[in-house]
Amino acid sequence: MEPLDSNYVVQRHENPRARFNWLYIIPVLASLWLLYLVAAAIFQFPITGIIDPVMSLMIVGFFVMVGLLFWALAPRSNR
């Protein structure tokens, strides 16, 4: 059996901005939330039961977003 060639390096041609693609979910979620609030204002249905869980998710989502931004902006190991 032949020894493995340890000098062989796989070149990854990854887009440097590919780590930021997950950020597209933020405007989508904000648009859905605004549509829900507009529908509640137009059709006058109560939203008191959903406000507390959504605000809790927004707070948790903020900290997750900050952590993911640190991950996306981190220097790559091959630089």
Results as ranks from 00 to 15, higher is better:
residue 54 V to L: 12
residue 19 R to W: 01
residue 36 Y to C: 07
residue 32 L to Y: 01
residue 17 R to K: 15
residue 78 N to R: 07
residue 22 W to C: 07
residue 75 P to Q: 09
residue 3 P to N: 09
residue 40 A to N: 01
residue 58 M to H: 09
residue 42 I to L: 10
residue 67 G to A: 15
residue 26 I to N: 09
residue 34 L to K: 00
residue 53 P to Y: 03
residue 16 P to A: 09
residue 10 V to T: 14
residue 44 Q to E: 11
residue 24 Y to H: 14
residue 6 S to A: 14
residue 31 S to C: 11
residue 74 A to G: 13
residue 26 I to S: 05
residue 22 W to T: 09
residue 65 M to Y: 07
residue 59 I to D: 10
residue 76 R to S: 14
residue 71 W to I: 15
residue 54 V to S: 08
residue 12 R to F: 10
residue 8 Y to P: 00
residue 39 A to L: 06
residue 41 A to V: 07
residue 46 P to S: 13
residue 26 I to D: 02
residue 63 F to R: 07
residue 8 Y to R: 12
residue 56 S to A: 15
residue 14 E to N: 07
residue 68 L to D: 01
residue 23 L to A: 09
residue 31 S to I: 09
residue 35 L to R: 05
residue 42 I to E: 02
residue 43 F to A: 09
residue 48 T to R: 07
residue 68 L to S: 04
residue 18 A to I: 06
residue 46 P to H: 06
residue 60 V to R: 04
residue 79 R to C: 14
residue 16 P to Y: 03
residue 19 R to I: 06
residue 70 F to V: 15
residue 6 S to V: 15
residue 69 L to S: 03
residue 52 D to K: 11
residue 42 I to R: 04
residue 67 G to H: 07
residue 67 G to Q: 09
residue 79 R to K: 14
residue 13 H to N: 15
residue 32 L to C: 10
residue 66 V to G: 07
residue 16 P to Q: 10
residue 61 G to D: 02
residue 77 S to N: 14
residue 45 F to P: 00
residue 53 P to F: 04
residue 61 G to T: 05
residue 54 V to E: 05
residue 37 L to P: 00
residue 31 S to F: 10
residue 11 Q to L: 13
residue 34 L to Y: 00
residue 46 P to R: 05
residue 12 R to I: 13
residue 41 A to E: 03
residue 70 F to N: 14
residue 16 P to R: 04
residue 77 S to H: 15
residue 13 H to R: 13
residue 18 A to R: 05
residue 72 A to G: 06
residue 27 P to G: 04
residue 66 V to Y: 08
residue 14 E to V: 10
residue 76 R to P: 00
residue 53 P to L: 12
residue 19 R to V: 06
residue 48 T to H: 09
residue 62 F to Q: 08
residue 40 A to L: 05
residue 74 A to L: 15
residue 12 R to T: 13
residue 41 A to Y: 06
residue 46 P to D: 08
residue 7 N to G: 11
residue 38 V to R: 01
residue 48 T to S: 12
residue 54 V to K: 02
residue 74 A to W: 13
residue 58 M to N: 12
residue 27 P to I: 12
